[in-house]
């Protein structure tokens, strides 16, 4: 596409990723959580796919790696939700409010859920572009 669009998207892409990861990480403090954060992260990659080509986006994250990440993250997420009272008793940080390490297991669950939603959306977008 055009030179202006390419340059601007290349410049703004890290900030979109940063915003998305911030929303995932601070899901227990600010409104957000895993699903909106994953959507914002993947929209950054969609920007790269539109302005450049699919190959350049594939250099950022490969499709087979996405499959493997999805399977592993799904396993860990299922295990944590099964044994949730155990995790809640072991990951106590005390009752510090409004800090990053405050809610007991919600931090890890947000990270895992965000990773899973992001890889699922990434695979869907890759398949739609490959047509």
């Amino acid at each position: 596409m055009d030179v202006i669009i390419r340059t601007v998207s290349k410049a703004i892409f890290p900030f979109i990723l940063l915003l998305g990861v911030f929303i995932i990480f601070h899901g227990h403090l600010t409104p957000g959580g895993s699903f909106p954060g994953a959507a914002i992260t993947i929209s950054g990659i969609a920007l790269i796919i539109i302005s450049y080509s699919l190959k350049k986006a594939e250099r950022i994250i490969n499709e087979e790696n996405a499959h493997k990440i999805e399977a592993i993250v799904a396993l860990i997420l299922a295990l944590i939700v099964i044994y949730e009272p155990v995790f809640r008793n072991y990951i106590k940080y005390g009752t510090r409010l409004f800090e990053l390490w405050s809610a007991q297991q919600i931090l890890f669950l947000n990270l895992l859920g965000g990773a899973m939603a992001a890889t699922a959306l990434l695979l869907i977008i890759f398949l739609m572009v490959k047509e």
Binding site: H67, K68, A71, A74, L75, A78, I82
Partner: peptide
């Protein structure tokens, strides 16, 4: 009883990997 459903979901993930 919840282990039945968890076992099935986990085996679906494992089927795609192995």
């Amino acid at each position: 009883l919840e282990y039945t459903v968890f076992l099935l979901i986990i085996s679906a993930f494992l089927m795609l990997a192995f």
